[in-house]
């Protein structure tokens, strides 16, 4: 099979020359393949990035929860200690610790700025809870907390996590769907370009049929030309998109969603498949179009 592919790519110089050079359809095919490859790289990057985001949110939020204590100034320390006692004796809790003022200030900084006077504001105390693999009985824990510390509220992040993970998963699906749509559009456009080239070369085809050329011989000259053009166009588009992606902002803690949209690690190799896929799509689109047109001729 590999030998067949190499022979196809090397081509038959004499067979290729029976089809006259067609500048417009050549440029159209290369441009289409290049533009589609460019879009595919971004759709792929978006899909992979949202996939990573969904996995990270799922992993990070699934095993953590927060206890928020709202109590009068004089009772804050006592209720905090009571909550910690409950948490230490609850199965399924790995660690629990009171967040420092500096950590709380950092959490609030994006909304209130760096000079927030925590002491003068009635800000609830936060306790970070890391769960062990099995996790605690959430409902039982809530009951115990309300009994020991009436001002404590357990937030297991479920209500945040679910819509975020759902949104990220759907974005990933949309990215994959976009890639399929782009592949379909590429096939449609290359089919139209191939049909246009075949129609423009009606006289060439009828001469070739008259002198005994088989359909496969005529089709091969067109198919190889369009496949090579699509491959070269897609290669250029892919390289351009990868360079652009490389210069996108890297993932940052503060950036959350809009940073880190590029590729990471082995995922940089995936775009290599795009020119190959474009060539395969062009091969079949042109081949089907060519045989359909040739079938109409005797």
């Amino acid at each position: 099979m590999m030998g067949g592919v190499i022979a196809f790519l090397q081509g038959d110089r004499q067979a290729d020359q029976v089809v006259p050079p067609s500048g417009f359809t050549a440029r159209l095919t290369s441009f289409t393949a290049g533009a589609m490859a460019f879009l595919t790289v971004f759709a792929l990057a978006l899909s992979l990035a949202t996939g990573r985001l969904a996995d990270r949110w799922n992993a990070e939020l699934a095993r953590t929860s927060t206890v928020r204590i709202s109590a009068p100034e004089g009772q804050m320390a006592a209720q905090s200690e009571a909550v910690l006692n409950v948490l230490r004796t609850t199965p399924g809790i790995q660690t629990a610790r009171v967040m420092s003022d500096a950590e709380q200030r950092k959490l609030l900084e994006p909304w209130f700025g760096p000079d927030l006077p925590l002491d003068s504001l009635p800000i609830p105390r936060l306790i970070e809870v890391i769960e062990s693999s099995g996790g605690p009985d959430i409902e039982g824990l809530r009951l115990r907390l309300s009994a020991e510390a009436p001002g404590a509220v357990l937030d297991d992040h479920t209500r945040w996590r679910r819509p975020l993970v759902t949104a990220a998963t759907r974005l990933r699906m949309m990215g994959l769907l976009s890639i399929l749509l782009i592949a379909g559009s590429t096939a449609a456009m290359i089919t139209l370009a191939a049909q246009s080239a075949l129609a423009a070369n009606g006289q060439v085809i009828s001469v070739l049929r008259l002198i005994g050329a088989r359909d496969v011989y005529i089709a091969r000259a067109f198919v190889r030309r369009f496949t090579v053009r699509a491959f070269v166009g897609a290669l250029i588009g892919t390289i351009a998109a990868m360079v652009t992606t490389f210069f996108l902002p890297a993932a940052a803690e503060e950036g959350a969603f809009l940073t880190g949209l590029g590729f990471q690690g082995i995922h940089w190799l995936l775009p290599v498949l795009i020119p190959i896929m474009a060539a395969i799509v062009a091969f079949w689109a042109t081949r089907i179009a060519a045989f359909r047109v040739l079938k109409r001729l005797m």
Partner: peptide
């Protein structure tokens, strides 16, 4: 169609 091509 291939037979026709060969015949031609």
């Amino acid at each position: 169609r291939d037979d026709v091509a060969r015949m031609r």
